[in-house]
Structures are given as structure tokens and as C-alpha cells.
Design a protein around this nucleic acid. Structure first.
Ligand code: ZN
Ligand code: ZN
Length: 835
DNA sequence: AGCACGCCGACT
DNA sequence: GTCGGCGTGCTC
């Protein structure tokens, strides 16, 4: 490496005539504080090669924040005096982002009415945008023994609090939380020098630096080298001439002094290098591309013929081999030196799936999801930036994976609701963002599902209007692989069963089918639709249910392990408490515990079919980490005959030995107060039915219902999903529901009931004055569950009857400003759920 | 968002 | 008078 150029002592620093070697010494940044609009100018210290797109740490007010370098202006703003300009503290991450990456983020910000900084936050791995922390440290030697005498109460209390700390210090945040009067007590202690205050700088993840050894010269036999040295060089040569120092030493059982000597003699070089290790990969046996059915082959041929941005809807019935099409579509992408992005539902990211990709593509596969540690996520992210051809498999947020040469994007199970973010803004849908990525890259986008979302369907079959939305191409895989039949679906009218004197929750047909299961050694699933899905506790004396103290919902109880007292939990805010001795309303000690739907089913199984072995598979039994997977493995290994579960059963269970699927009461899916209820019910039933008969043995589905005439049931029986969607579309059109309109849900919440309602009202009034003609405002209305996690929630719903209008008129910023402190506003564009 | 500064009522 | 509360405005 060339030595740094020597500074010429005579050269005066002259801002008017910039040094050609160094670009302008100022940088305009966006600070990590979405509330603050606009750019801030900083000086670039000579030792930092700041470039546009870099992630920086800058001083801001009394703290240090993350920031993004946006521009390198030739001069600072004229209204800013040079003394006001502070210097950049550090470069956290050099920003060699792929072309169009910022365009993508801007597009997300604009469409979802979200400050660009909030979008950047979601796109970057967590922790990269750090901020400083103010900490207060005790200065013990300076404090006299009779300190108490001098101090007023607030200061004394603070001092005593600090004395509790093992390290003699606490973060200022923590102190303020512990005692509200901390603010008052601090100046006194600071003045006396008994405590000091300091800024702990942000600590973003750094790539792990490791020593690497590279062979630069082969020794010839005459060279005076020891045996150990020769061995080591030979070993290094066998490994391709390049190894991590630690690996080399381990391999040769040598000490580092040998390597140092070899470096001195000029045989090897030792360098510090980034070690971006992804998770430990056990090598898998490679598999070969499988033979395709004619439909698969046709779909693949179409996809491989694409050279431009193009959305493809791959509508493949359950068991039709979509994954094999994905795999074979990806292979040529990698061969061209490009990368592929595969997005899967949260629950679908199983070892089963990733192994399938690894078997085909080996170490070119990497997984990116929220369960990785911050460090692992950062390493993976950095690795993606390097641009080697690879397959990234991830959940929703992986749609922002910074892959420079993107050749293909796939959304598997594209109808899945986990692709939509609803919590912090931006409330983006990965499918929508993926379409933009596909256009910017440009590259094809495959949306795969057995039950495509109505929006996706509409896009594939509606008249292509002027580019908005981009029409997509429809590909169908209408039959299962190896010509396996679709499961036979039987609808059982439970009213009929009742008339015939069967009061059990199992129809005679289902009961028979369950009994045969034991004889044939096959397995079954029992699906319990969620409706009164969770447990609750109520008082036998006064009838009141035990409620969450922070939410307007009742608490669920969970089966104690080992006879301990029952644990009560809130599903909304994660409040937990031990079951009380008495009713908190009337003091009665007699409490009744109501079981969940799945619990009731397993109880009935015990009673009527005691020989059947079952596993309960619901949010209760899969709560702990890894339980989900463990239960599935148990089931797959035949440790039970039946899996009894809720919604979870519909996702990603691909077990060949399952031949029976029973739906306990489909009706629980219909009457939800949501315009998407029908669509979702149909998707759920088709998906769960599709779990049957995936192996050599044909499957059967027994669908119990009190409404056998319901249109959803009819569609499921006919396997006529497309017809159902056409029908649903016809219904939505006159009502101005999506996709014939665009919805925007404003969620307003705060800790105070009245204030929330007032702000909602005020925002509604303000919006009314700004409403374009084709836009309707509904509300304000309290959320279906008014209070969650101590916050009161109100909604405003905008209905854009002309979806091509867009949201350029929408005054997001002004609304945000009108909320005032303590009131949170979330703007959810295209909400999936209105609750 | 933090964190200053500054203005006002109610307690020593 | 000062203690303690909160509203307003700034951060390169
Ligand atoms: Zn009671
Ligand atoms: Zn709660």
C-alpha cells in the first residue's frame, strides 16, 4: 500500500479553492430523528473519507446520533456561521449501496406517507443507527461521609440511588425513570463534583476483524526452513493458499510464532480482514433438479424467458411443486452472477425449507430474519453488499436486502398476512415493495400461492391501465405433482347430525375417519378455527371475567407445568400474573377456568377416542421458543396420530403421511367483522385442506359446518378459488372496497382517554377540510378494543374511491404535528386489518 | 426525540 | 422569595 501523501506545510487551507484530492469538506446529513425534517451541515475532518450514502455518527444538540450522508455541498449554507458547524464524529458504515437502493427507500417513504428516516431505520440492520447515552457516574472519593447534611431531598435521593449501582453509575434515562425528581437533584451534585455526567458514544456493530494468512511464495527445497515451517506452508498451500490464522494454527497444531517468522522471511502475509461468517453450515448432500410436470415446465419456461421487470402470479394448487419451479428459476440467475431474493411468511422459514435451498445451492444460500442476533444480522447484511451471487431467504424485512445484482424476487405464499407490517411506520407490504424492487432492478417477480390474495388476482386479470398498477402475468399449476389427486372434500351438516341425535362435536363421518386412522397407521390434522379461541377465567359468584389491567380484554390462563398455580396472560400487551386467590371484583374464591377450542377438542378426543394419540398445536403450546418446531418434529416422527391446532396448521406443514384433515366448525371463520373475512376464510380452508394427501396415499377432508350452503364452503368443495374471487370482486366493486378503492387507516392512541378522542376528532375535522372529492372519511371511531397496553385507541378511515388518485394530497406531516406530545399517530396505507 | 430555557402558581 | 410544573423552540 502506498504511504499517505505528506502534507505540504506551506499550503494554506482555502475553502474557495478546494483541494482536488479531497472533495468538499462539508457534508449534508439526515439525522436519525424522523420528527426532524431537513438536512444538517457538518464539517468532514481530514482523516474521514466521508462519501454520499455513508452512515455516520454526528453530534446533535446534547447527544450523538446516527445520520446518513446525503450530499457533499461546495459551500455551507450562507446563513450558517462557521462556528455553528460541528464535525462528523465517525463513519459507521461506508455506504456503497446498490444502484437505485435510495430510490426504493424514497418510493416507500412517499407511498406509505412516512419520513424517509423511518424507512431507512427499517431497511438497515438494527443497531446500525446508534445514539449516544448520557450516563451519571458517582465520584466516590469526593463525597464526604456526612454528605447528607449538605443536600436537599432530591439530590440526596439521587445520590442514594446511585450508590445502589454496582458500577457506581447509571444511565440518565434509568435515573429519570426511577425518580421523577432526578432532574432537580442533579445540578447540586454536579456542582459539588460528587457525580459527573458523560456521553457514552453509540456502539454500532462492527465487522469482526480477524487475521488472515496468505501464501505469497513457495519455498524451494534448498531454503533453510525448519520442518514445522515447511509443514505449515504445505498445509496452507493445500488449503488454497489463504486461511484464517486461527484455522491454520488449529490445523497444524502450531503456535503463531512460526507464522510470524514465515512472514518475516516473506513467505506469507498476515492481514486483518473482515470475517463475515454466516451461521454454521453443515454441508448437505447436493440434490439434482427434479423432473418437471408439463405445467411446471411451461411455467419455468415463461419465467426464464423474461428479461425485464415483470410480475408473475404463479397460482399452484397445494402440492403442485411451486418450490421446484422456484429452485430451477433461481439456478440460471446465479449462473449469470446475479442474486435472488426469496421472501417467505414468518412461520414458513423452517429448516425444512432452507435445507431444500441449501441442497440445491449450497453455501450460496443465506438466511436473513429477525431471530438472528444483531451481530449475525449485520454480518449477513455486509456480506450481501459485497455482491457475490447468492440466494437470500428471509421474512418481510428482507425485502430491503441490499443485493447489488438482483436477478429475481420470489414471494412465496404471497397471500400471507405477515408480509404486511402494521406496527411501526412504514406500514409496508413486502409484495408492494417487491414490485418496486423488481422494476428498479429490473428483474422478474414471482408471486406464488395456492390461494392468491384478491389484490394480486385482480392485478393479473384486470384491464391493464396506464401502467398503474403494473399488470401481472398469470401462470397456473392446476394439478399436483406425480398426478396425485386433490383431496376429496366432504361437507358435513352439523345441524343434520344434531337432528339425528349426535350431540358430540365430532360428526359420525369424522369419528369414523379418525378411527380408521389408527388402523391404517396414517395421520390426521384437526383444525379448530379461531372463534373464542383463547381461554379465560371467570368468577362463579359474580360472573365477571378476569381482565387485563392494561387492556380491555380478558386474560387467558395457561396450563401450569408440574401443578404450579395457573399463569394468567394478556395476548395483547404480554402482561402476566399468577392466578389470584379470589375474584378481584367480589372476593369470591370460586373461579372457573374455561378452556380453549383446541383444549375442548382434545378433551373430547380423550373421551370418545382414547386410543388416539394427539398433539395440541396452538399459541399456548407453541409459546416457548422452538416449541413450534419440536412439536412438528414429534408429529412427523409418528409420535402422535393427530395434530389438533388452530390457524398455524394452515401454514407450511408438508407431511406426506397426513391423509385426513378435519375442520371442526368452519363457521368460526365467517362472521368476523371485516370485509376480507370471506376471502380469508376461503384461503384458510383451502390451505388446510391442502395438507391432506401430499404423499402417495390420497387425502380426504371432512368439513363440519352449520352453514353448508355458505358460498365459501361451496367454493372450497368445488376447489373453485378463481370463481370465488370473481364473485367476491363483483361484491366489492359497488361497495368501493379494495381493490376498487384505496384505504388509509389512521390509528391514534395515547394514555389518556379524553385526549385521544379529542385529537381523533380534531384530526378528523382537519382532514375534512382537505379532502379531495372522491375521498370519504369514516370516523373517528374507537378501535374495536379501545384500550391496549394502557393506551386508548381511536381510528379514522379514509376511503379513496378512485385508487389512482394516490396520496400526494395527504397532509401526513401536518397531522403528525397536530397530535401533540404523548399522542401517537400511525398512518397505515392499505391496511390489512381494520382493528 | 431530547434537552435547554423561561414563565407562572403555591409553598417555605 | 425558591421550588417544582410545564409550554416553546432549537439542534448543523
Ligand atoms: Zn366475583
Ligand atoms: Zn393487556
Amino acid at each position: 500500500m502506498a504511504p499517505p501523501p505528506a502534507a505540504s506545510p506551506g499550503a494554506d487551507y482555502n475553502p474557495d479553492r478546494p483541494n482536488p484530492d479531497r472533495p468538499n469538506p462539508w457534508v449534508e446529513v439526515l439525522v436519525d430523528c424522523p420528527q426532524i425534517q431537513g438536512l444538517f451541515t457538518y464539517a468532514i475532518p481530514p482523516h474521514l473519507p466521508v462519501a454520499i450514502g455513508d452512515i455516520l455518527t454526528v453530534p446533535f444538540g446534547h447527544q450523538q446520533l446516527g445520520a446518513i450522508a446525503i450530499a457533499l455541498p461546495s459551500a455551507p449554507p450562507p446563513d450558517l456561521s462557521p462556528s455553528q458547524i460541528k464535525a462528523v464524529i465517525d463513519i459507521v458504515n461506508p455506504g456503497f449501496f446498490p444502484r437505485h437502493y435510495w430510490d426504493l427507500l424514497r418510493q416507500v417513504a412517499q407511498y406509505y406517507c412516512t419520513p424517509i428516516m423511518a424507512v431507512i431505520r427499517t431497511a438497515l440492520p438494527p443497531g446500525l443507527l446508534g445514539r449516544s447515552q448520557r450516563r451519571i457516574r458517582l465520584n466516590a472519593p469526593a463525597i464526604p461521609p456526612d454528605a447528607e447534611v449538605f443536600l436537599r431531598p432530591a439530590a440526596l435521593q439521587l445520590l442514594q440511588l446511585l450508590r445502589q449501582s454496582k458500577t457506581g453509575e447509571y444511565s440518565w434515562r434509568y435515573l429519570q425513570q426511577q425518580m421523577p425528581t432526578a432532574q432537580r437533584g442533579l445540578p447540586d451534585l454536579l456542582q459539588r463534583g460528587w457525580v459527573s455526567s458523560y456521553l457514552e458514544p453509540p456502539s454500532p456493530p462492527r465487522p469482526k476483524q480477524q487475521k488472515a494468512v496468505t501464501l505469497v511464495r513457495q519455498p524451494d527445497p534448498t531454503e533453510p526452513l525448519t520442518e514445522r515451517q515447511r509443514q505449515l506452508l504445505a498445509s496452507l498451500g493445500r488449503s488454497g493458499g489463504d486461511l484464517w490464522l486461527s484455522h491454520l494454527l488449529q490445523q497444524c497444531h502450531a503456535s503463531s510464532s512460526i507464522v510470524t517468522t514465515l512472514a518475516k522471511k516473506g513467505f506469507v502475509v498476515i492481514q486483518e480482514r473482515e470475517n463475515l461468517r454466516s451461521e454454521a453450515e453443515h454441508p448437505l448432500d447436493r440434490d439434482q433438479p427434479k423432473a418437471l410436470s408439463p405445467h411446471q415446465a411451461a411455467a419455468l419456461a415463461y419465467i426464464q424467458g423474461l428479461t425485464q421487470a415483470q410480475t408473475v402470479l404463479l397460482h399452484g394448487v397445494t402440492g403442485s411443486g411451486k418450490t421446484e419451479v422456484y429452485l430451477q428459476a433461481i439456478a440460471p440467475v446465479l449462473q449469470r452472477g446475479q442474486s435472488a431474493l426469496v421472501l417467505v411468511p414468518e412461520i414458513g422459514l423452517t429448516p425444512q425449507l432452507t435445507d431444500r435451498f441449501r441442497q440445491r445451492f449450497g453455501s450460496q444460500v443465506c438466511v436473513y430474519h429477525s431471530a438472528l442476533s444483531d451481530g449475525e444480522r449485520y454480518d449477513t447484511w455486509r456480506q450481501m453488499l459485497q455482491g457475490d451471487p447468492q440466494v437470500v431467504i428471509g421474512t418481510r424485512s428482507a425485502v430491503f436486502a441490499p443485493l447489488p445484482h438482483l436477478g429475481l424476487v420470489i414471494l412465496d405464499e404471497e397471500h400471507d398476512s405477515s408480509f404486511k407490517q402494521s406496527q411501526p411506520q412504514p406500514c409496508y407490504h413486502a409484495r408492494t415493495v417487491a414490485q418496486w424492487r423488481s422494476q428498479l432492478a429490473p428483474c422478474p417477480l414471482i408471486l406464488g400461492s395456492a390461494t392468491p390474495a384478491l389484490e394480486t388476482w385482480h392485478q393479473a386479470f384486470s384491464d391493464p391501465r396506464e401502467g398503474h398498477p403494473p399488470p401481472s402475468h398469470y401462470l397456473s399449476l392446476p394439478s399436483r405433482i406425480y398426478d396425485r389427486p386433490q383431496p376429496q372434500i366432504r361437507v358435513i351438516d352439523m345441524r343434520q347430525e344434531f337432528h339425528c341425535g349426535n350431540r358430540s362435536i365430532f360428526s359420525r363421518s369424522l369419528r369414523n375417519a379418525l378411527e380408521t386412522l389408527r388402523e391404517t397407521g396414517q395421520q390426521g390434522l384437526l383444525f379448530v378455527p379461531r372463534r373464542g379461541h383463547s381461554t379465560f377465567v371467570s368468577c362463579r359468584s359474580c360472573g365477571e371475567a378476569l381482565d387485563c389491567p392494561h387492556c380491555d380484554v380478558s386474560l387467558s390462563h395457561h396450563q401450569p407445568h408440574g401443578g404450579a398455580r395457573s399463569l394468567l396472560r394478556c395476548h395483547y400487551c404480554h402482561y402476566a400474573s399468577v392466578q389470584p386467590e379470589q375474584c378481584p371484583h367480589c372476593g369470591s374464591p370460586y373461579l372457573k377456568f374455561f378452556g380453549s377450542g383446541t383444549q375442548r377438542v382434545t378433551q373430547e378426543l380423550e373421551r370418545h377416542l382414547p386410543d388416539l394419540r394427539w398433539i395440541r398445536f396452538d399459541s399456548d403450546t407453541t409459546r416457548t421458543k422452538g416449541a413450534h418446531r419440536a412439536l412438528l418434529t414429534q408429529f412427523a416422527q409418528g409420535e402422535a396420530d393427530i395434530l389438533v391446532g388452530t390457524q398455524m396448521l394452515t401454514k407450511g406443514i408438508d407431511l406426506p403421511q397426513v391423509t385426513l384433515v378435519g375442520v371442526m366448525a368452519a363457521d368460526g371463520l365467517f362472521h368476523l367483522p371485516d370485509f376480507r373475512a370471506g376471502e380469508q376464510a376461503c384461503q384458510t380452508l383451502l390451505q388446510v385442506a391442502g395438507r391432506a394427501g401430499r404423499g402417495a396415499e390420497p387425502g380426504q377432508v371432512i368439513l363440519q359446518t352449520y352453514k353448508p350452503d355458505h358460498e365459501v364452503i361451496a367454493a372450497v368443495v368445488r376447489q373453485g378459488y378463481g370463481d370465488y374471487l370473481a364473485q367476491e370482486l363483483a361484491q366489492r366493486s359497488p361497495l368501493h372496497y379494495p381493490p376498487y378503492s384505496q384505504l388509509v387507516l389512521l390509528r391514534i392512541s395515547s394514555l389518556e382517554a379524553d385526549r385521544t378522542a379529542q385529537v381523533a376528532e380534531a384530526l378528523g375535522q382537519f382532514l375534512t377540510s382537505r379532502l379531495p372529492e372522491s375521498v370519504l372519511l369514516l370516523g373517528p371511531a374507537p378501535a374495536p378494543i379501545l384500550r391496549v397496553a394502557r393506551r386508548f385507541r381511536w381510528h379514522l378511515l379514509l376511503k379513496l374511491c378512485d385508487p389512482s388518485l394516490g396520496l400526494d394530497w395527504f397532509p401526513a406531516l401536518e397531522l403528525q404535528q397536530r397530535c401533540g406530545p404523548g399522542v401517537a399517530l400511525t398512518i397505515d396505507v392499505d391496511p390489512l386489518s381494520l382493528s
